[in-house]
Amino acid sequence: MLTLEALHLSQGSFDLRADWSVQAGARVAVIGPSGAGKSTLLMAIAGFLPPARGRILWQGRDLAALAVGDRPMSVLFQDQNLFPHLTIAQNLGLGLSPQLRLTPAQRDAVEAALQRVGLAGMGARKPAQLSGGQQGRAALARALLRARPLLVLDEPFAALGPALKSEMLDLLDEVASATGAAVLMVTHDPADAQRFAGQTVLVAEGVAQPPCETAALFANPPPALAAYLGT
């Protein structure tokens, strides 16, 4: 269980508060107007921004002491999810060993992960030789290999077209189910939340609200959400 305990983030004149938990294996969308702090919240959970006050806990353990790469989570950023100078197989291999020293079994695991996301035989290519959708698949395959109990995504599919994006969300669902990971995904598209996430966190006016049932939230939107949706 991920717990944000009286969390207060502060960056210059920007402030954000959050005080809630996410159950293991949950699917949570994070929505809200741009500039409200969705990405900031994710980056704090990932460890790129230390909290001004409060704590971020996983299974009751404070994450503050853990380096970014040692936290129990995989992160997908908006862009730059792959190193362009490394092959796809090397990019995936980094998910298993940051030293890139892979055992034969790990090599097989990389190949299996590529196959699972539909990139069989493309391990030797560089990211630039892949389409945008394929690059997203490769990043998800690495998350599959890392198999961390939390998957944090900062609109990684925002640049993809609608068909490709829904394909990616299906794959994300598959990866999360396979690893049993809880998913925390920032999106600006309410349809993503409704399609993918059982719960939704609304970030607006300096507060990240506790997760609500997505369907209930959209059926009866609070004023901040109504303003964002324009309804």
Binding site: G69, V75, F83, L86, P98, Q99, L100
Partner: peptide, 16 residues
């Protein structure tokens, strides 16, 4: 950010 999120550091970071 990507390198730190993958725990890539030290000599491996220099090399890769």
């Amino acid at each position: 950010r990507l390198a730190s999120s993958l725990g890539l550091r030290g000599m491996a970071r220099l090399r890769y």
